[in-house]
Design a protein around this nucleic acid. Structure first.
Lengths: 340, 340
DNA sequence: ACTGGCACTCTGTCGTTACGAGTGCCAGAG
DNA sequence: CTCTGGCACTCGTAACGACAGAGTGCCAGT
């Protein structure tokens, strides 16, 4: 049994009404609020079919219908078109993002903007190191046996690590180290560096070899192994909108999930397709987020993607609006990064 | 009318029971659970006095008593001694903090540790720039008209900013700039730098003056004006412990406050006295945190203080335990920083 | 294929009642 | 003067039943 156009129209109406009112929607109020051109009884028949197919359900006998995850999914895929942003929103985005002075600033402004526009929890991933190149490596002597290694990536990210040296190294040798390291690594993709770092050690004269080996291990750790992804988060207070009705009673599991960077990265950091991705309820494989949806997308200068951003909210969410906003913000941020 | 010893003992018992059970405590259960050596009726009389003095109150007629903010205050100031940490806790702290590789790592581990031990929301301020000295300034050419300025502070903090130059500058001149800037500023307290930066511009030859002025303005901004304090936060999920009973119904205002860095800094960043500070309910002047208490202290290598840390929870909180934990963690972190 | 009508089911609300915890007060004992 | 036991009172809460309202499913009719 396939769903004819009117049944789909009914589903759309249910989703829209439910998102707006947060209350199960019945056949009568449906025909009142939408021009469906049929009677409540007909709508009821359609609803019975939709329920059988798993797109809607009744919380109790004799309450209205509520969309299921599958219902939202169908709505998102086939029934909604992306809303255009209002001029006010466009202006808000621009106003918010101009004037950012460095990467931290860009990320923080973006995440706050996103939370504010969507009125949901926003997450922004810093440009991924895995997709960056080395712009410059700096070695700063802290003491004779300690260096601070500073890595500046082309995306603007800066990572630093302390290096404990096996033996004292005079300043001139540090200069030499710095030159050698940069000659070899500057401009390279981080992912390509491991063999090059090994090469650095191999090419070393025996007397400076121990030092370089030590530096190399920290380099590898910084550039690759522990190439830690960073995140910014904002708008957690938005979880409390709509009472505790969303999220089935407690915010607890959601708040817990939001504290796990690993989880968040899984949600927004999966950057394969460059299109906007929507994960509804169970679709994001995380128990704690059964009643949450995530809208995410990649961003980056031009067509390349260097990181992900997105928002998290109740499954009962304004998908068209949220999708539009997430996309728009991602594009603006990409443009901003392209200017550097 | 002053409070005799037994009345104080009654207050202590009320606070302890209420913190544990989260329910208003009556005269009968009080004498059952504590060896007060008097009858419920006597306790009732004492409670009437305590209520008149504003230390406890009844949610409704014929419910037990609940401590007021003033009651908690008295309890903290005069009735409780700091609990000793269990060996297990000590071990947890050590295990958690060894192995931290850089400042970011230290701060993140600390904030998570604190949240876990106290089972509350933890806040850690990064070492304040205002109390740091410049260890090194690095200038990295991005293009001929762009430099990246990287400032490394003695506390391990690293700040970076982009500098747009008025005219192209060749690499050799950058080396020269770097030397001049470091000669003047390295080792100086950030707070003392403004006149020195001005001096740098004044001492400049006319042809490089424009460049230096430009650099100087960014320097000033980075070092002083926008010497932004950074924070780490963890354990927000702990707010949901004890149901929504704490925080009078909604977490909303609390979550909102936690998003405002300015507010958090006011709470934990006020470092005048080096002792642990407890702010109960109204005492922290923030409307949104009427029903929250904050326990905070400063930390730093040795006796100096470079930043603040603390926890936030319901006024109904285990003060002695929390205070002990916050102090212990602060001391461990200080020791850790002293090793650098 | 759609519609109007009707019986049914369930939830939420409202008043009533009964109960229990806890109090304040008072008179009496040490 | 302080403490205690007793007693009447208050008030929130749980339990109960009745009721109204929303919404449904089904069926016969157009």
């Amino acid at each position: 049994m396939s769903l004819d156009d009117r049944k789909l129209e009914v589903l759309r109406a249910i989703v829209e009404d439910y998102v707006e009112t947060q209350e199960p929607v019945g056949s009568k109020s449906l025909v009142e609020r939408h021009q469906l051109g049929v009677s409540p009884a007909t709508v009821r028949n359609d609803m019975a079919v939709l329920e059988e197919e798993g797109y809607i359900r009744q919380p109790h006998t004799s309450a209205g219908r509520v969309p299921t995850d599958a219902g939202y999914r169908l709505f998102v895929d086939r029934l909604s078109k992306v809303k255009a942003l209002s001029p006010a929103e466009r202006r808000a985005i621009e106003r918010f993002l101009i004037g950012a002075v460095d990467l931290d600033d860009v990320v923080h402004r973006t995440v706050r903007l996103l939370a504010q526009l969507t009125r949901q929890v926003a997450v922004v991933q810093y440009p991924s190191l895995a997709r960056s190149s080395v712009r410059h490596l700096e070695l700063v002597p802290i003491s004779t046996t300690r260096l601070m290694l500073v890595m500046i990536a082309d995306t603007g990210r800066v990572e630093q690590r302390l290096v404990e040296l096996p033996s004292p190294v005079p300043p001139d040798d540090v200069t030499d180290l710095r030159r050698r390291v940069n000659e070899k690594l500057a401009g390279q993709k981080l992912a390509d560096t491991p063999p090059l770092v090994q090469g650095l050690v191999d090419d070393c004269s025996p007397d400076s070899r121990a030092t370089m080996a030590c530096l190399a291990s920290v380099l590898l750790e910084t550039l690759v192994e522990r190439s830690e992804e960073r995140l910014a988060l904002a708008g957690t207070a938005n979880l409390t909108r709509g009472g505790v009705l969303d999220f089935q009673g407690t915010l607890r599991p959601v708040l817990e999930a939001l504290e796990e960077e690993v989880i968040l990265l899984k949600l927004i950091g999966d950057l394969e397709p460059s299109t906007t991705r929507v994960r509804i309820g169970d679709e994001n494989q995380i128990d704690n987020l059964r009643s949450a949806s995530v809208v995410s997308t990649g961003y980056g200068p031009g067509a390349t993607i260097v990181g992900g951003l997105g928002v998290l909210g109740p499954t009962r969410m304004d998908y068209p609006g949220t999708i539009a906003t997430v996309r728009a913000v991602a594009r603006y941020v990409g443009d901003l990064l392209a200017q550097n």
